[in-house]
Computed example of a mutant assay.
Amino acid sequence: MNLRVIEKKAKSIYTPSRIPGVEWSLNQYVGCAFACKYCYARFMAKWRDYGEWGSWVEAKTNAPELARKRVNGSVFMSAVSDPYQPVEAELKLTRRVLQYMDKRNGLSILTKSPLVTRDIGIFKLFRSIEVGLTINGFTGREKRLFEPLTPVQEARVSALKELKESGLKTYVFVSPIIPEVTDVSAIVRETRDFADYYFFEVLNLRAAGEEFQILLKEGYPESYAILTDPGKFGEFLRGLKGEIKGLRVKAEGIETHQRGWEFVEL
């Protein structure tokens, strides 16, 4: 699939965040070439007549200048894209945003790409920063079906290790957790030496969209049944909570989305 890059100028770059505990989100890109089948940001395509999700990326060319603004509170990069998706290697928009940002702002970055290690030198200029990798353990069939265009897990773990060894605070975002598919314990075993803490998120089936719901129901009927049956889901969640507590790692909690946004304390 050929990627279409649309250059746009934005009026502002900091958007009030709906993510609990985060005041601002910063998106220098909209859209993502990783095109994960379950992506919750696919809804953005409704307001942009660019074509199929994953076939286009909107780049806010004036983002670095807008990023100069000092805002009060923490900033999360990014909510509707991946800041280190493939087009970043050429455009370097994320890198320039980081260079222009007020280094007194607290910043949290989340990505699936090992390209993030390119900017370690800039990260170290921030007073308060953490960098996270989304690691979900998808390989083989699951990787081909759910996120065929993303970097493989080994590359993400290697990037996490490099970030940690450089002295940065790191975290692992274990998402999406799909019952009967995601091996949470295996992910933690592979990454615990390189992560300061973990955040766990169960698949938001509603936000993943109808196409992914059909894919999951046909290919993984037991997973679908657990996510859609309140009794089965409750049993699954209790087991997941116990599993995570038994791993004895620092964990922020479990995001479940079953009735809107929900956060389960561990």
Rank of each mutant, 00 (worst) to 15 (best):
V5F: 09
S12Q: 08
S12G: 13
Y14W: 06
Y14A: 08
S17A: 12
I19S: 04
I19M: 10
G21Y: 09
W24T: 03
W24H: 02
S25W: 04
L26S: 06
Q28P: 12
F34H: 04
A35D: 08
Y40I: 04
Y40T: 10
Y40G: 13
A41Y: 10
F43L: 11
D49E: 15
G54S: 02
G54Y: 14
V57D: 05
K60F: 06
E65T: 14
A67Y: 03
R68D: 08
R70T: 14
G73D: 08
V75S: 07
V80Q: 12
S81P: 05
D82G: 03
E90A: 10
L93P: 13
L98K: 02
Q99W: 01
M101Q: 07
N105F: 01
G106Y: 00
L107T: 09
S108G: 14
I109F: 04
T117F: 10
I120S: 05
K124S: 10
L125G: 13
N136W: 00
G137P: 12
G140Y: 00
K143W: 02
Q153F: 01
R156H: 00
V157T: 02
S158G: 03
T170S: 00
P176E: 05
I178R: 03
I178H: 06
P179N: 05
P179F: 02
S185W: 02
R189T: 06
R189H: 07
F194S: 00
Y197N: 11
F199W: 05
F200L: 07
L203P: 05
A208Y: 08
Q213P: 11
I214A: 10
Y224M: 02
G231S: 12
K232G: 07
F233V: 13
G234M: 11
G234A: 15
L237K: 14
R238D: 15
K245M: 15
V249A: 05
V249L: 02
K250F: 11
G253C: 10
E255S: 07
H257C: 04
G260F: 12
W261T: 14
